[in-house]
Write a protein that binds this DNA or RNA. Structure first.
Lengths: 301, 301
DNA sequence: GGGACGCTGTATCGTATGTTACGTATTTTG
DNA sequence: CAAAATACGTAACATACGATACAGCGTCCC
């Protein structure tokens, strides 16, 4: 299985900026600066290419050479000579570099938040800021509809609901199980040794739902379990990080949360909030269905 | 420049979103929403494509079909069928649409909301907003110094650390215990029946620390346990809600988190984030002390 | 349990795309 | 002002990319 192609950071791989750091020169960290640095030494045509790229940076650079050249009013070879002068071997390499740059921008909100004035004024924990960003970012990729769909699956299932998590995320599974078990029958948290819950596979079928929490470092045991459950037709709901656990292959629904914080550990806070939101959505749907179980529950207090 | 934007229906114009607006359907303004809208009707393979795209939106979509398919773990034709199902004529058209979207985002960072505010009051927004507010509020009443003090107590204790929680908060205790146990010796989570952990009081003394999670409805069993521990001189760190559990009487440190959200349940998310922050602080202090345990731990991997 | 349908991957094909060679234009230099 | 050098575009080329046909497989339904 292609377990390890998901995770790793490919920063050290290809697509780095052409090495410009000889001696203690100025640090060039992106292509825009690189261009600004060299635009003085360029001939007229390439300079026009540089200017059009800067004008609508970096979008033009992601299009084809033909479009780029047309917009700049020069020929294709000029564009290629331009990127060659920047130090790239070929045009695709140049594009990859631009994309990496964009991806970095999009993923680290810290870089782009010049706005939040910190109403308290005091020293706000960078940990908190990062966590809040993670949540906003996580929910940006999560629509009402997706959550509603998952909630519906948890409500309408004809069988049982199982929950399980990894080394650090199992508490999230417990948390969710503790709530769901109150409002629904047949909710089980799978705890203990691997052999314990592996044996419960026998009870599981296509009418059942399995909720899995798995962030890196992804656990093989969970992947194995998920695969077998999938083979039995169990519907899998996966909570994972943005790099997607290998279990995503088998999952009917995938929730990808952001986990990066300035700490030695990854943060599960965003996933936690999604879990709470989901719990709320399930509860609301059940209430809407007028589930008498909830009323009975109230009566028991 | 990306000339044409989302609004109009003209299918003749290149790079518009595939016309989806029949009648008064919901407004689909970007591809992510489009995917969320249709992901339910997709077969397994295409759904994996959709999920991987959403997970690192939209960068994967700007790469080649081959890279996309490899990352998603499906074949190239599946990717093409996926974009076809979204309504695009071909892959380049799909990419252009993504690029236009990106360009629009980059020009007006304010409009960066991928999931629009949901004026109708979806389940997501109010919940998330309330949670974010809770966290800000919680941390506003929580100084760096308080956290540092608690961290110091957890680091410098000469005895053991015990953690326990209530019905719904016990997973938080587990979460914290799972992390602390990695970097420190003698960290115990108290689980199981009340009689189980009540008996462990014998082991506990003034050199020990007890971390308790208790929000309403406060559990008598926990209060009884806390009182006895307090009488034995145990240092208590209490995570509770803004109304303060009765255990606050006995606690050396009290962390009061906001819990109110528009849901049938209270939210423990703010406390969760505090817990993570505390875990991070403890880890940092230990590293600063040059705790060889952490280095040994690295070596064991 | 058998047949039909739909989904998915393999293999192949056509083409758009990046690349290169070469001739012309423009600038530079003695 | 002439000659050389550099810059630029046209056109031909090769490759890698997206598209398609087809067969295998699982799933659902009768």
């Amino acid at each position: 299985m292609a377990s390890q192609k998901w995770g790793q950071d490919k920063q050290t791989e290809r697509n780095g900026l052409p090495s410009r750091s000889k001696g203690g020169e100025k640090m060039i960290s992106n292509i825009a600066e690189l261009i600004a640095d060299r635009i003085g030494t360029m001939p007229a045509g390439e300079r026009r290419a540089a200017q059009t790229l800067i004008a609508s940076y970096p979008m033009i650079g992601l299009k084809t050479v033909a479009e780029f050249s047309a917009t700049a009013g020069v020929s294709s070879p000029t564009i290629l000579r331009f990127v060659a002068r920047l130090g790239f071997q070929n045009y695709p390499e140049f594009q990859s570099s631009l994309q990496d740059e964009l991806a970095a921008q999009l993923q680290s909100p810290a870089t782009r938040t010049l706005n939040p004035p910190s109403p308290g004024g005091g020293t706000v924990s960078p940990m908190l800021e990062a966590t809040l960003d993670n949540m906003r970012e996580t929910f940006r990729h999560l629509s009402d509809k997706q959550l509603a769909d998952i909630a519906t699956r948890l409500v309408d299932r004809r069988g049982k609901t199982f929950l399980i998590g990894g080394r650090f995320t199992d508490p999230l599974a417990r948390y969710m199980a503790a709530h769901l078990a109150v409002i629904q029958p047949d909710v089980f948290h799978l705890a203990g040794q691997e052999s314990m819950w592996r044996d419960r596979l026998i009870d599981m079928g296509k009418r059942d739902v399995l909720v899995i929490f798995d962030i890196r470092r992804y656990q093989d045991s969970l992947a194995r379990f998920a695969e077998k459950a999938h083979q039995r037709g169990v519907q899998i709901v996966l909570f994972t990080d943005q790099w997607l656990s290998p279990i995503a292959r088998f999952a009917r629904h995938v929730i990808a949360g952001r986990t990066a914080v300035p700490s030695a550990w990854d943060s599960s806070a965003a996933l936690f909030v999604v879990a709470e939101t989901l719990i709320g959505a399930v509860t609301r749907q059940l209430e809407a269905e007028g589930a008498k179980r909830i009323r009975e529950m109230e009566g028991l207090r």
